[in-house]
Design a binder for these strands. Structure first.
Lengths: 292, 292
DNA sequence: AATAAAATGAACCGTATGTTCCATTTTAGC
DNA sequence: GCTAAAATGGAACATACGGTTCATTTTATT
């Protein structure tokens, strides 16, 4: 086993991301059973963190000794050392807002009541993002963006609580050079604007219960005129869903009776930028990312 | 030990929150050393989850046997059972968006590129909420809400990217019965509306770099007329900051060149509902919360 | 202050754990 | 197709773990 020491001169990963990179790098050169463990480890990191060698081996369909060999292949001196990395990963995750809201020693309030209100909205937003991330269907998203990509003009339909989202979409589409038309009640020109839309266009309609009657009615008219409707709503029973060619179910958490808009906003931006990327012919495929 | 069984007839906690509640409930009646362990457990849940009885005991300054007694006092049949609850807590935390963005098996994309875009916006939103949660100052928040509470009319000032936030604030204030006036360019009446504002009113001005000149100019005028300005902006060097009586620095993460609005939205809602709560005379202090 | 009861500390024990070892099978090289 | 090397399965092993026990100390009661 000592002959191995020299081949592994690089420092072995202490954090999960580095370990993952190492595993993916060597994946091709790993023996079958070891590779099997490697795949299982990346797919079930929590199991590795908490399980015993025996239980993990059973789940992964290998012998316990293979786990030790896997760890040693990577340069660790044993399964336990490797397991530490998987445990660190769970340790590092910052506490959630939900937790921050309730984890208060004793009954004394931490922070002012105003702070608690903001924390509540932060928690609601965070939760909404979480749910969206879990529930969003890739195929639905692709179909929606495909439809929008084919549209000459993208009409945006939303009132009241959904209106901020619509105005943001309109702003973003404008910046990205995509022709769009925001339909609002203030101008009183909604009927005229709607009558211009044809099957070569598309509509993004946003409405949540209680659904704004104007939005529903206009979506119905547009749909009847063969204008494809992309709906963002909160239920399969939403009136918007029946008029829509593609529809998204977004479950926003609420605080104090006010629902978050965080997930809807993120989806809206995804649709917007997705269309723009597609129209750019996927040339500059990788856009900037502020991670880190 | 059997006489204990009857006193603990309530189901023992399977999730961390319930366990925490139980511990806090009995805190007063626990023996000294046991209480010492209880405090340690709530302060260092990660240690309990991963450590061994021996290592935890050393860290907490007690004997290993005390840990088992602590668990049994709560009704668990041993330390291991109690530890499971602390481990579940870590398991339940869903993987972060950041992680999902990078955790891709091999080099092949998981999900479509459209999905990756939405994930990017979700991650940006999530990160923004995180930063807001860490950086928001309780005192600044209290002062802002106090000013808004004293205002007869709350004017809301925002253009372009910030406009959706403003429209949401206007909508929420309206629903909460607080008089407000959204200042927008479309109507072309901005100057007239602004001239109505007095020192008995207040302004919420929102602008991020590159600052909309209209917003800056109007904030300057309002400030000169002794109308207190609450600014939501992105830097201490923002032109808005100098006109403001109270100002918030909000650092929104961006993806693909589009900054998130999640944190700004949460703060906006906090201000809005905070004022409404204050005006309700703090009667119904605790507002509904959708947690769970 | 004396006594009973509870709590605590520390040694002890059975077990389940990670690890090693070796026989067997599979793969690679000629 | 034969041989050497690597990989694998499975049992055996040393140990570190959680739990128990009991003597001692502390607390409560009278």
């Amino acid at each position: 086993m000592d002959d191995m020491a020299e081949t592994i001169s690089e420092a072995l990963p202490r954090d999960f991301e580095a370990l993952r990179a190492l595993i993916l790098d060597r994946r091709q050169s790993l023996p079958k059973r070891i590779a099997q463990v490697a795949a299982y480890a990346l797919d079930n990191p929590d199991e590795i963190a908490f399980g015993t060698a025996a239980s993990i081996a059973t789940s992964a369909g290998v012998q316990p000794s293979t786990l030790i060999r896997f760890a040693q292949h990577l340069g660790y001196d044993g399964f336990t050392s490797l397991q530490q990395v998987f445990r660190e990963r769970l340790r590092e995750r910052t506490t959630s807002y939900e937790e921050r809201l309730t984890v208060v020693r004793g009954d004394a309030d931490e922070g002012t009541s105003n702070r608690r209100i903001v924390d509540g909205f932060l928690a609601a937003a965070s939760k909404s993002l979480d749910v969206m991330s879990r529930n969003l269907d890739d195929d639905t998203l692709d179909r929606a963006i495909d439809i929008l990509n084919g549209a000459e003009t993208i009409y945006i339909l939303a009132r009241r609580r959904s209106y901020p989202v619509a105005s943001y979409i309109a702003y973003a589409l404008g910046k990205l050079g995509v022709r769009s038309q925001l339909i609002e009640s203030a101008s009183g020109l909604s009927p005229e604007i709607i009558s211009f839309a044809s099957s070569r266009d598309a509509v993004i309609a946003i409405s949540f219960s209680p659904y704004a009657s104007a939005t529903v009615e206009e979506a119905r008219i547009l749909s009847a005129n063969n204008v494809p409707v992309i709906a963002i709503t909160d239920s399969a029973f939403s009136p918007l869903a029946q008029f829509a060619k593609v529809w998204f179910e977004v479950a926003e958490a609420d605080f104090g009776g006010f629902r978050s808009l965080a997930a809807t906003m993120a989806l809206a931006m995804g649709l917007t930028v997705g269309v723009a990327e597609l129209r750019r012919g996927r040339k500059g495929k990788k856009s900037a990312n502020s991670k880190g």
